[in-house]
Design a protein around this nucleic acid. Structure first.
Lengths: 141, 141
DNA sequence: ATAATTGCAAAGCGTTTGCACCCTG
DNA sequence: CAGGGTGCAAACGCTTTGCAATTAT
């Protein structure tokens, strides 16, 4: 990878007040290369295969850090493991293909009105909501 | 527990083509006693505390079985563990209090129109969707 | 310089499984 | 009585952690 390309990841990390290390830049690159979501183990394997010297624990620590800084999304489609993916700005949900695991990022969320109604009806202060839509994409049919 | 009370659980199990054993009846009773959701471990502890002789593995096996037979819902609010709860009939979503983990079952789902639009727009055959709304309930505020 | 980050290996966690025994139907 | 169900303990897979060595600012 060119020093030029690394520059993007470095800036992204520093923008979030995170120290730019070789390993963190590598994880960010792996995420950028993956159009869908990936588990920590998959990212580790991807990097190892390309000769990146990085420990599995570091991958986990980095993903947790990036997630808490809002750089990556953590999806829990299956119990017992988390999937991560670079997230766009703002609030959004995902449409996942059950066959090939392709993920489409949805940018519109029509739920606000419904949520407001729920808040009143059940006397909840609603802080968050997740939506995950599953189906089969055109290519898998 | 009275033999009378056991009868309800027995019928419920047999209705789903599941053999009624002492342990399965006990798990069903534990679920019925829990207004919110519970993990396998919590159900095991609840039963053990009441002197029910049951193995942890059996609790896991029973919950998996009941889930695949549509008797219980499995929610994954937290990574690495599943929560189970008796589910009402039909399609519904949950409103969960992040503080006390109280769960409110929502019976209206206004998403159908939105989903239809997504299906067309992204050429997906949509098979399922999950929604989970998190907030703080009135009692915890 | 020095405080943060890393790697390794060990521990932790919830969950699953193999197998001999037991019970339901 | 036959086949499914159970208990135990060991195995599992993913994730986290302790600690000494390394690295970024």
């Amino acid at each position: 990878m060119s020093p030029q390309a690394q520059q993007n990841e470095r800036v992204e990390l520093e923008r979030h007040g995170v120290r730019a290390t070789r390993q963190r830049i590598a994880v960010l690159r792996a995420l950028a290369a993956e159009p869908n979501d990936a588990t920590a183990q998959e990212i580790y394997a991807w990097l190892a295969q390309r000769g990146e010297a990085i420990g599995l624990a570091t991958v986990y620590r980095t993903l947790a850090l990036l997630n808490s800084n809002g750089v990556v999304d953590a999806l829990a489609h299956r119990p017992g493991e988390l999937c991560y993916r670079l997230c766009g700005e703002g609030h959004h949900h995902h449409l996942v293909c059950g066959e090939c695991h392709r993920v489409v990022e949805l940018d519109d969320c029509d739920l606000d009105e419904w949520l407001k109604r729920l808040a009143v009806e059940h006397k909840f202060a609603i802080s968050a909501h997740t939506v995950e839509v599953t189906g089969i994409c055109a290519d898998c049919r």
